[in-house]
Design a protein around this nucleic acid. Structure first.
Lengths: 334, 334
DNA sequence: TTGTAAGCGTTATCAG
DNA sequence: CTGATAACGCTTACAA
């Protein structure tokens, strides 16, 4: 068992010949300490290797500085990009990120939130899954702020950040039409999250509004492999689609690869493809995928700003951000 | 300002009609409480929405349960995959992950470690960058355990996890030779981390040992774009290489894309390519990249096991893991 | 098994 | 500006 011996403010105070309150004030931004006292304290602290104990500080201040990031599938390109922005901005805001991974099992998010409460996190940001109403209530009641990203559920007291998924999906129909596509299709996963379903809804209704044929297929869990399977199902029909909107870029990459290498269908020559997220791979020249950009920096900065501000009106708030269409080569006639 | 009102053990004790120590014991695994008392406490806790305050507990126990993950470029496929395994296994071990992002600036890792100390983390796992000796010493002196992954530096008291990079790089030379390659080349970044340099060293020496021609080029920071630039430099030579080992898969993807789409060179027909890491994209059929697998689960489980065990011998320890060659289609004649 | 009481390292309050 | 003193919520001897 290790020593576990940290130096305390008391020891610093002793060495510097001041009271421990003086030490505390030295390390509290904006507290009133004379230059001379501060200097002596800093010197002693440096020599002893003193570092404020945030556990004790959090106990007193009733504010831990911890923000929990609750997320599943961290290794996914979009998720990890969002994670990067969030941790970076939290650090810049003087907070620290606690990462909790969830799985698809029931109550996984609830367990994560309970963890957040135990560590007295100032806030939790939920990137995937939905918390049970009751546990969300508990968070809010105990003064923990809650941010839901792309969840689109009405939870009073929380900040909701969403995209204009449905409207965006409508815009891509226009693009397919301009490219001369005749038979549209939407490739979705079975995850059924609000944003995924909004994209499907938007695509289908916009296509119908233009009097275009449109079909929908759903399979698996929004990854590359699911995209391949979807291609297999959709491209072996007698009347195969010539314009496919995939619910995410990962699906689109799998779809394109299967189309080209398995069925020798040229993209965009015989088949136009679009995705959603604008993950890094979408810009790789093997894919060159037309897609919608997740405004990850905007999402992260909105979330962190809301947390940092501690807005006086604690009420719910809903932010809807714009997903910009990124034109690349997977749709003809950009 | 929010209410920030958590229920305390005292309140639970009052409601259950017991002392607050009884409450404490109920939530301490392996403490002696009668079944009846436990039941009443649990009931009261449930009703009130009580959750142990880990800040206070950590203060007393001198053990926070926090493990810091210090990492740069979280959004990179290999890094995020390792991150996923680590957080998952830490959770299973009853620990919680605190994520600290670093950049390439000097002292970035040191600042991260200082943060870790302030939160009295039980341990820190460093995935990128190197801490200053003095701050590492401070961590160890204050009883914080340190794990360095792929850093290959001698830091007494820490756990070092490394791969057999140099030996692996040697094995790929054999593969190139079997494929009939004549002119080998190593595509590296300028990052100069120990593992990257070990791969370069291993490749060059093995090639020379076989009497094969071999060149080295270094550029940028180990990403897709750097791979493209390296291809540009290396494939426009009069005597261009026909077997290229890229220091990472990301470099390899960029390299292959440039080779095929920019220079119309067929892979593996005219050019064999190999990478390192076995990121998810390496298995995508557009790349089908022969590469070495980072044993991420083994790495993570070794790290967490070491932390959990609190091995009596506190001394340094060095684990060298094997990077398995994953045969795919980017080298002829697998 | 249970309750009492003494800390853990900090900050906030309030005299001086 | 500075120093005592009382919290914060918890765990853990120690005694009952």
């Amino acid at each position: 068992m290790s020593a576990r011996d940290f130096v305390s403010a008391q020891e610093v105070a002793d060495r510097a010949g001041v009271s421990r309150s003086a030490v505390s004030r030295t390390f509290t931004p904006g507290a009133s300490v004379s230059a001379e006292t501060r200097r002596r304290v800093m010197e002693a602290a440096e020599a002893l290797g003193y570092h404020v104990n945030e556990l004790a500080r959090g106990l007193m201040r009733n504010e831990s500085g911890i923000v929990c990031l609750i997320v599943s599938d961290v290794a996914t390109p979009y998720r990890s990009a969002l994670l990067r922005e969030l941790t970076l901005m939290l650090q810049n805001a003087g907070k620290v990120a606690m990462l909790i991974s969830t799985d698809r099992s029931d109550g996984s998010v609830d367990r994560a939130l309970r963890q957040a409460i135990r560590y007295r996190a100032d806030a939790s940001i939920i990137l995937s899954g939905m918390p049970d109403k009751s546990i969300a209530q508990l968070c809010l009641r105990s003064g923990q702020r809650l941010v839901l990203i792309n969840r689109d559920d009405e939870q009073p007291g929380t900040l909701q950040i969403n995209l204009d998924d449905q409207e965006a999906a409508g815009r891509v129909v226009t693009a397919f039409a301009r490219a001369g596509c005749q038979r549209l299709a939407f490739a979705n996963s079975e995850a059924g999250t609000p944003s995924l379903m909004a994209r499907e809804r938007g695509f289908v209704t916009a296509a119908r509004a233009l009097g275009m044929e449109v079909s929908v297929e759903r399979y698996g869990w929004t990854g590359y492999d699911a995209g391949r399977v979807l291609a297999q199902r959709m491209l072996t029909r007698t009347q195969r689609p010539d314009g496919v909107f995939c619910a995410t870029d990962l699906l689109a990459c799998g779809f394109m690869d299967a189309a080209r290498h398995q069925f020798s269908i040229s993209v965009p020559g015989q088949l136009c493809v679009a995705g959603f997220d604008d993950i890094e791979q979408a810009s790789w020249s093997s894919y060159d995928l037309t897609t919608f950009a997740q405004p990850v920096v905007a999402i992260a900065s909105k979330a962190v700003a809301w947390l940092a501000n501690m807005t006086p009106d604690d009420g719910e708030q809903s932010i809807r951000l714009h997903a910009e269409l990124v034109w690349r080569g997977s749709i003809r006639g950009g």
